[in-house]
Protein backbone atom coordinates (compact mmCIF):
# COMPACT_ATOMS: atom_id res chain seq x y z
CA UNK A 1 0.00 0.00 0.00
CA UNK A 2 1.24 3.50 -0.85
CA UNK A 3 0.28 5.94 1.90
CA UNK A 4 1.22 9.54 1.25
CA UNK A 5 1.41 12.49 3.63
CA UNK A 6 1.30 15.77 1.80
CA UNK A 7 4.08 18.21 2.56
CA UNK A 8 2.97 21.73 1.69
CA UNK A 9 4.93 23.51 4.37
CA UNK A 10 2.02 23.69 6.81
CA UNK A 11 3.34 22.46 10.07
CA UNK A 12 4.37 19.29 11.57
CA UNK A 13 4.44 16.27 9.27
CA UNK A 14 6.90 14.47 11.43
CA UNK A 15 4.48 13.63 14.24
CA UNK A 16 1.88 12.33 11.79
CA UNK A 17 4.46 10.24 9.95
CA UNK A 18 5.80 8.78 13.21
CA UNK A 19 2.30 7.94 14.43
CA UNK A 20 1.60 6.17 11.12
CA UNK A 21 4.84 4.23 11.52
CA UNK A 22 3.87 3.33 15.06
CA UNK A 23 0.70 1.79 13.58
CA UNK A 24 2.90 -0.44 11.45
CA UNK A 25 2.61 1.36 8.11
CA UNK A 26 5.10 3.43 6.17
CA UNK A 27 4.24 6.89 4.99
CA UNK A 28 5.78 8.62 2.01
CA UNK A 29 6.16 12.38 2.24
CA UNK A 30 4.85 13.70 -1.08
CA UNK A 31 4.62 17.14 -2.68
CA UNK A 32 3.82 16.70 -6.41
CA UNK A 33 0.61 16.01 -8.39
CA UNK A 34 2.20 12.89 -9.89
CA UNK A 35 2.95 11.41 -6.49
CA UNK A 36 -0.59 12.13 -5.32
CA UNK A 37 -2.07 10.15 -8.19
CA UNK A 38 0.22 7.19 -7.42
CA UNK A 39 -0.99 6.85 -3.83
CA UNK A 40 -3.57 4.44 -2.47
CA UNK A 41 -4.28 6.60 0.57
CA UNK A 42 -3.51 10.18 1.46
CA UNK A 43 -3.29 12.17 4.68
CA UNK A 44 -3.43 15.96 4.50
CA UNK A 45 -2.15 17.37 7.81
CA UNK A 46 -1.94 21.03 8.63
CA UNK A 47 -1.61 23.74 11.19
CA UNK A 48 -1.54 27.47 10.54
CA UNK A 49 -3.84 29.69 8.53
CA UNK A 50 -6.43 28.70 5.88
CA UNK A 51 -5.25 31.23 3.28
CA UNK A 52 -1.60 30.20 3.65
CA UNK A 53 -2.50 26.55 3.23
CA UNK A 54 -4.59 27.14 0.11
CA UNK A 55 -1.94 29.28 -1.55
CA UNK A 56 0.78 26.72 -0.71
CA UNK A 57 -1.32 23.92 -2.24
CA UNK A 58 -1.96 26.07 -5.32
CA UNK A 59 1.71 27.02 -5.69
CA UNK A 60 2.68 23.35 -5.66
CA UNK A 61 -0.04 22.75 -8.28
CA UNK A 62 -1.66 20.13 -6.03
CA UNK A 63 -5.30 21.26 -6.08
CA UNK A 64 -6.46 19.44 -9.22
CA UNK A 65 -4.61 16.26 -8.29
CA UNK A 66 -6.16 16.34 -4.80
CA UNK A 67 -9.66 16.76 -6.24
CA UNK A 68 -9.06 13.94 -8.73
CA UNK A 69 -7.77 11.70 -5.95
CA UNK A 70 -10.75 12.40 -3.71
CA UNK A 71 -13.18 11.68 -6.54
CA UNK A 72 -11.43 8.40 -7.36
CA UNK A 73 -12.84 6.52 -4.38
CA UNK A 74 -9.51 6.16 -2.57
CA UNK A 75 -9.32 6.89 1.17
CA UNK A 76 -8.35 10.44 2.14
CA UNK A 77 -7.92 11.91 5.62
CA UNK A 78 -7.67 15.63 6.36
CA UNK A 79 -6.45 16.53 9.84
CA UNK A 80 -7.22 19.88 11.59
CA UNK A 81 -6.49 22.59 8.98
CA UNK A 82 -6.21 19.72 6.49
CA UNK A 83 -9.90 19.10 7.19
CA UNK A 84 -10.90 22.76 7.08
CA UNK A 85 -9.47 23.29 3.58
CA UNK A 86 -11.89 20.60 2.33
CA UNK A 87 -14.70 23.12 2.94
CA UNK A 88 -15.90 26.00 0.77
CA UNK A 89 -14.30 28.90 2.59
CA UNK A 90 -13.15 30.19 5.98
CA UNK A 91 -13.68 33.33 8.05
CA UNK A 92 -9.95 33.13 8.75
CA UNK A 93 -9.13 34.10 5.15
CA UNK A 94 -12.15 35.77 3.56
CA UNK A 95 -12.34 35.52 -0.23
CA UNK A 96 -10.04 32.48 -0.44
CA UNK A 97 -11.93 29.48 -1.83
CA UNK A 98 -11.33 26.08 -0.27
CA UNK A 99 -11.26 22.70 -2.02
CA UNK A 100 -15.03 22.41 -1.42
CA UNK A 101 -15.39 18.65 -1.16
CA UNK A 102 -17.64 19.40 1.80
CA UNK A 103 -19.94 22.32 0.99
CA UNK A 104 -19.95 24.66 3.96
CA UNK A 105 -18.04 27.32 5.82
CA UNK A 106 -15.29 27.42 8.41
CA UNK A 107 -16.14 29.89 11.15
CA UNK A 108 -14.42 31.41 14.15
CA UNK A 109 -15.60 30.33 17.60
CA UNK A 110 -17.87 32.93 19.21
CA UNK A 111 -16.24 35.54 21.45
CA UNK A 112 -17.71 34.33 24.73
CA UNK A 113 -15.56 31.20 24.50
CA UNK A 114 -11.86 30.95 25.18
CA UNK A 115 -10.22 30.67 21.78
CA UNK A 116 -8.36 28.54 20.72
CA UNK A 117 -10.36 25.50 21.75
CA UNK A 118 -7.26 23.90 23.21
CA UNK A 119 -6.91 20.61 25.01
CA UNK A 120 -8.66 17.29 25.44
CA UNK A 121 -12.33 17.02 24.60
CA UNK A 122 -14.71 14.12 24.16
CA UNK A 123 -16.25 13.27 20.83
CA UNK A 124 -19.87 12.31 20.43
CA UNK A 125 -20.51 9.90 17.53
CA UNK A 126 -23.33 11.12 15.28
CA UNK A 127 -23.31 8.02 13.11
CA UNK A 128 -21.29 4.86 12.85
CA UNK A 129 -18.07 5.21 10.89
CA UNK A 130 -15.21 2.82 10.14
CA UNK A 131 -12.87 5.60 11.28
CA UNK A 132 -14.06 5.21 14.89
CA UNK A 133 -14.22 1.44 14.98
CA UNK A 134 -13.28 0.25 18.49
CA UNK A 135 -13.00 3.78 19.91
CA UNK A 136 -14.56 3.80 23.41
CA UNK A 137 -17.60 5.91 24.20
CA UNK A 138 -16.81 9.45 25.34
CA UNK A 139 -13.21 9.03 24.22
CA UNK A 140 -10.98 12.09 24.58
CA UNK A 141 -9.03 13.58 21.69
CA UNK A 142 -6.63 16.53 21.55
CA UNK A 143 -7.96 19.67 19.85
CA UNK A 144 -6.08 22.89 19.05
CA UNK A 145 -8.04 25.26 16.79
CA UNK A 146 -9.70 28.68 16.64
CA UNK A 147 -12.02 27.94 13.70
CA UNK A 148 -14.56 25.16 13.22
CA UNK A 149 -16.21 23.60 10.19
CA UNK A 150 -19.90 24.19 9.61
CA UNK A 151 -21.13 21.90 6.82
CA UNK A 152 -24.20 22.85 4.77
CA UNK A 153 -25.32 19.22 4.87
CA UNK A 154 -25.29 17.96 8.42
CA UNK A 155 -25.40 14.36 7.13
CA UNK A 156 -21.66 14.49 6.56
CA UNK A 157 -20.98 15.05 10.29
CA UNK A 158 -19.88 11.76 11.86
CA UNK A 159 -18.84 13.15 15.26
CA UNK A 160 -19.31 16.34 17.25
CA UNK A 161 -17.71 17.76 20.36
CA UNK A 162 -19.19 19.93 23.09
CA UNK A 163 -17.49 23.26 23.77
CA UNK A 164 -20.39 25.14 25.37
CA UNK A 165 -22.24 24.22 22.20
CA UNK A 166 -21.99 21.43 19.67
CA UNK A 167 -19.22 21.65 17.05
CA UNK A 168 -18.11 19.45 14.18
CA UNK A 169 -15.34 17.05 15.22
CA UNK A 170 -15.30 14.75 12.18
CA UNK A 171 -16.89 14.62 8.74
CA UNK A 172 -17.09 11.98 6.05
CA UNK A 173 -18.10 11.45 2.48
CA UNK A 174 -16.61 8.02 2.45
CA UNK A 175 -13.89 7.31 1.83
CA UNK A 176 -12.98 11.00 2.28
CA UNK A 177 -12.69 11.89 5.98
CA UNK A 178 -11.92 15.05 7.88
CA UNK A 179 -11.09 15.23 11.57
CA UNK A 180 -10.65 18.42 13.57
CA UNK A 181 -8.65 16.85 16.40
CA UNK A 182 -5.05 15.64 16.20
CA UNK A 183 -4.90 11.83 16.19
CA UNK A 184 -1.10 11.97 16.24
CA UNK A 185 -1.32 13.77 19.62
CA UNK A 186 -4.24 11.86 21.12
CA UNK A 187 -2.37 8.90 22.59
CA UNK A 188 -4.02 5.48 22.22
CA UNK A 189 -7.40 6.76 20.93
CA UNK A 190 -5.66 8.77 18.24
CA UNK A 191 -3.48 5.87 17.17
CA UNK A 192 -6.62 3.73 16.92
CA UNK A 193 -8.25 6.23 14.55
CA UNK A 194 -5.10 6.37 12.41
CA UNK A 195 -4.92 2.60 12.39
CA UNK A 196 -8.56 2.43 11.30
CA UNK A 197 -7.77 4.74 8.40
CA UNK A 198 -4.65 2.80 7.44
CA UNK A 199 -6.53 -0.50 7.42
CA UNK A 200 -9.61 0.77 5.53
Amino acid sequence: MNLGIIDYGAGNLRSVAKAVEYCGATAQIIATPREILHMDKIILPGVGAFGHAMSALAQLDLLDALKTFMQSGKPFLGICLGMQVLFGDSEESPGVPGINIFPGHVRRFPNHLKVPHLGWNQIIPEKSSPLFRGVPEEAFFYFAHSYYAHPVQSECIIATTDYQGSYTAATAREPVFGIQFHPEKSQSNGLLVLNNFITL
Binding site: N12, R14, S15, K18, K185
Partner: peptide
Protein backbone atom coordinates in the same frame (compact mmCIF):
# COMPACT_ATOMS: atom_id res chain seq x y z
CA UNK B 1 7.82 13.26 19.50
CA UNK B 2 8.76 10.01 17.76
CA UNK B 3 7.77 7.93 20.73
CA UNK B 4 5.22 9.83 22.76
CA UNK B 5 1.99 10.81 21.02
CA UNK B 6 0.87 13.65 23.24
CA UNK B 7 1.15 17.45 23.03
CA UNK B 8 4.56 18.88 23.75
CA UNK B 9 5.37 22.50 24.60
CA UNK B 10 8.96 23.74 24.58
CA UNK B 11 10.20 26.95 26.17
CA UNK B 12 13.52 28.55 26.99
CA UNK B 13 15.80 30.66 24.84
CA UNK B 14 13.44 31.24 21.92
CA UNK B 15 14.44 34.59 20.41
CA UNK B 16 13.45 34.44 16.75
CA UNK B 17 10.81 33.04 14.39
CA UNK B 18 13.53 30.70 13.10
CA UNK B 19 14.10 29.29 16.62
CA UNK B 20 10.37 28.66 16.93
CA UNK B 21 10.15 27.05 13.49
CA UNK B 22 13.00 24.65 14.24
CA UNK B 23 11.31 23.49 17.44
CA UNK B 24 7.94 23.04 15.74
CA UNK B 25 9.53 21.18 12.85
CA UNK B 26 11.33 18.96 15.35
CA UNK B 27 7.97 17.90 16.74
Amino acid sequence: AEQVFMPLTVGGGIRTVADARKLLQSG
